[in-house]
Amino acid sequence: MKLYIAVGTAVLLVMAIFIIVFVAYYQQKQIRQQLILKEWQEKYRKGLLAATLQAQEHERRRIAQDLHDEIGTMLSVTKLSLNQLGRTVEHNDPGSTVLVQKTRSLLDETIANVRRISRDLVPTTLERFGLVSALEELAEKASNGEVHVELSCSDKMPTLLPQLDLTLFRIAQELINNAIKHANAENIIIDLHCQPNGILLSVIDDGRGFDLDEILKDKKRGLGLRNIESRLNVIDGHVTFDVEEGRGSRIHIQVKNLKPEVEVEVETV
């Protein structure tokens, strides 16, 4: 009987130890698989995001090209025809000259607008002369009598990857737009600095600020801020919002100047 008890106890102990080892091994294996799956999902999500942004850029480019090549050309041809018509009318019906001139100035305004929209859609300065020049142009365009936008930049800025250039430019564009439209800022500073581990872009304004949590809670609002986060996600960058309602905002973007895993193709026109 005592032998049976000893054997039974030994069998039970072996089973208990086997169960413990099995649980520990199997759980760790499952956790590893879960982590791999998560990593894969994250990679897939980034890829999807990158593809969406790429598609967005392609679409912008296509619209810009259509505006420039088709509508712009048509308008130029229309202007030429109007000029010819104007010359004819001047001889036969001097009374209609004012009307022709008015139409011509409207046409000039339309051509200028089409050019502006086309240029806004595709940042050609960025592609031709780099981020600093594009930001300078952006600051210049955004500045007017009421708003003053200033660019502060490191003397030696390294050449960045095209997708990094584009991301930083789009983010700066979005933040300046927000500062002017929503925060009613009068002074905006764009600070671009090269750090040993990457690039730091800060947009500082003296506007009325905002409550970040409140904006992010509301799904209908904060689209621009979410867009910034999405863009940074693709290039492994991160954003810090130093914001509060009633005071100016300081938004800092930090990105690594390394080749990211997911590349966004940038075409030149």
């Binding site: 009987m1 005592k2 008890i5 106890t9 039970l12 102990l13 089973m15 208990a16």
Partner: peptide
């Protein structure tokens, strides 16, 4: 708990013998 229980289960189930 499982090792403790497995190691002493039979000792107590057959308490008269053990």
């Amino acid at each position: 708990a499982i090792v403790h229980a497995a190691g002493t289960l039979f000792v107590f189930l057959f308490v008269k013998v053990t």
